[in-house]
Design a protein around this nucleic acid. Structure first.
Ligand SMILES: [Mn+2]
Ligand SMILES: [Mn+2]
Ligand SMILES: [Mn+2]
Ligand SMILES: [Mn+2]
Lengths: 221, 221
DNA sequence: AAATAAATTTAGGCAAACCTAAAAATTATA
DNA sequence: TATAATTTTTAGGTTTGCCTAAATTTATTT
């Protein structure tokens, strides 16, 4: 596996995340994600294609190939292991880890990452509940459901949060919602799709549709 | 304290180390240290001068000013804390830590470094025996002497190694010489300045002048 | 099926950090 | 103190990764 620049690594990671939802990624989409201009995306797509990391036909969008996916997964592995380290060992809160991991992930020494993994006890998920790829880049796919799809009065365990801005994480922290929290939905209001939820013995409270859409739970069916 | 590029940080650190021996650093000297060409040094010196990090007169060499020294010390702090982390927590050998720390040192989040320091128990020296600057950039200056100046038959404790190439560190490891090792000089040979030394209960053996010049000891006078 | 709108690419530039070759300044030597 | 050698700087390029503005292609409306 060759060495890639910080920019190339950030592009690969962003494409990986975007193509999970869409099948193929568009120039504008990626430009927005990376806070750059569409012209810069086209430049980089030519380069990444030349380096055989993705498939790209002008005007037709792009998609990582098998090799590009493998590279993306090693970067995601680094990112999530560092996030776990920051949260677990350095007592960073879960809304602070992402920004720092965004830089640490580009230190590409393999021994460093594998030893870190071992030191941390081979964690399987990062502080946001996202799975950590193993040494071989294998990633665990768990069947999580969105809280809006959780049947009423049925306990679900918070497994991950899709939006990871510090704003949402701050709000969740304030509401005592964290990975592992047991949640039950009491009622859904059709008017604005808000819902009343209950956590443990606390009094029930209401959350907005916007927030609910970002909370995923493991649902012991 | 502003943010500097990876290149700028590497230049600052190199100048700091070079000016400890010489008073002022020359273009060629720094080019050699950084494996670049003299013309590149001149380019960068103009930039660092414009950023008020050093004093520089064309053809007259350069020297960090107070502010540049402070910046250099925060980079050295990061470098040595990561070296300590790698050796202590990730079981890297002391000849492997430098290369990785060379990359990790450029992640400039202050909270990360201060928390890492705390996590490691505020270590005072890195795996090569070099002092780690504290939160305020303060560095401990210890009065070490070179082993060639150690009186015969007097125990000294290895405190640091000046050359830190993996070649020398590998050799020292093989010879069972590490930070903290107690050494006694049995005899010096004027012919080639080699010397016979003794470590603990081991049989005495000979080391070259070249090697000896890199070993510094704390000498309980 | 035109016409219009939106998305994407191309063309041409810029800054950072390098480089080589030539010019200029400094230092050493005869 | 000239002359030669060495060191340093300048001039002019290159590559990477970004930008704006214009051209082109594709998609959406009438
Ligand atoms: Mn990143
Ligand atoms: Mn994460
Ligand atoms: Mn470095
Ligand atoms: Mn060191």
């Amino acid at each position: 596996m060759l060495n890639y620049s910080i920019s190339e690594e950030n592009y690969l990671k962003a494409i990986y995340h975007l193509q999970k939802t869409d099948g193929t990624v568009s120039t504008n989409e990626l430009a927005k994600e990376l806070n750059t201009k569409p012209a810069s995306i086209t430049d980089m797509m030519k380069k990444l294609k030349a380096k055989k990391l993705l498939n790209y036909q002008p005007y037709r969008g792009f998609r990582l190939n098998a090799y590009g996916t493998k590279v993306a997964l090693t970067i995601i592995r680094r990112h999530r292991l560092w996030e776990f380290f920051l949260a677990q060992k350095l007592k960073f809160s879960w809304d602070e880890v992402h920004e720092v991991a965004e830089e640490l992930e580009h230190v590409s020494n393999k021994k460093l990452i594998d030893r870190l993994d071992e030191f941390l006890g081979f964690p399987r998920v990062d502080p946001h509940g996202d799975p950590i790829p193993d040494v071989n880049g294998k990633i665990e796919v768990s069947k999580k459901i969105n809280i809006t799809e959780l049947p009423l009065h049925t306990a679900g365990t918070v497994a991950s949060i899709s939006d990871q801005s510090s704003e949402i994480l701050e709000l969740l922290e304030h509401r005592n919602i964290t990975i592992g929290t047991k949640i039950e939905v009491n009622k859904k209001f059709e008017f604005d799709n808000s819902m009343e939820i209950k956590i443990g013995r606390q009094a029930a409270f209401t959350i907005s549709e916007q927030l609910a859409k970002n909370i995923f739970v493991d649902h012991a069916k």
